[in-house]
Design a binder for these strands. Sequence first.
DNA 1: CCTTGAACCTCTAGTCGCTAGAGATATTAT
DNA 2: ATAATATCTCTAGCGACTAGAGGTTCAAGG
Lengths: 138, 138
Amino acid sequence: MFSIGELAKQTKVKIPTIRYYESIGLLKPAERTEGNQRRYTAEGLERLGFIKHARELGFSVESISSLIELQEHPDRSCYAATALAETQLRTVRSKIKQLRSLEQELARISTGCSGDGVSENCYVLSSLANHDLCNKDH
Amino acid sequence: MFSIGELAKQTKVKIPTIRYYESIGLLKPAERTEGNQRRYTAEGLERLGFIKHARELGFSVESISSLIELQEHPDRSCYAATALAETQLRTVRSKIKQLRSLEQELARISTGCSGDGVSENCYVLSSLANHDLCNKDH
DNA sequence: CCTTGAACCTCTAGTCGCTAGAGATATTAT
DNA sequence: ATAATATCTCTAGCGACTAGAGGTTCAAGG
């Protein structure tokens, strides 16, 4: 049996976050001691690890709820779980794409101004003001 | 003189967002008609365009405030503005890096389960549960 | 057994960057 | 003059936490 603090240390999820997950139903309510403190089993540890990993992969809390439900009713879960992962993959890929175009523009902007002291005509500021200087259309 | 609605149409920034920007001091308070409605000049249009562009590039509202201040006191602004852009660039690059590692893991996860009906042993779910299956350490 | 200090409890409110809705007023076109 | 549309302020909500106040419980040492 772990206290919430030990659980936090093991999973590197902060204590208030653990309580938050319980409050929104992502973690099922922990057992309590006589004095009302939470006690966790290895199962709770495992589940929190699952949640943490999925959050790191960018799954929303809602998606994680679905994944957990799938875990508990394993019939046909494979298709649905794979579908969720694929949706997530698409989201990540489109984010990457968008960020790469930002990267290009920022790189162009921040090297445009060489820093030789001509300050009235800052390339960064004028680039931001005038979207036409930008090749991409975001 | 534009109404807030025209401004919204031109810049593609939503009306409540424009009012929000004013409320947090990012846009200076617009002039008003007799009947208390906002009226904007070309200058306001330009500034909102600047803000929009900077937001699209991922600058925080706080950074944009700094950029605007720099714009209004143009001495030495070039260095500071370039520094802000470079910080932003570093942030974007590190986000890309992180997302790419997520992409790899998600791609691996979601192709692992071929979908031939073996449901008890879903690769997606077990990968999420067991971080050891993952090569990266996020 | 008792005390002390760390860890825990609940509850409320704050974060960021908006977005949505209610209910009232203003402008514009006919 | 009237009707339709646009705008106003204000409050509350989103997601996913995080921080703090004020009170209780646990574990270890004396």
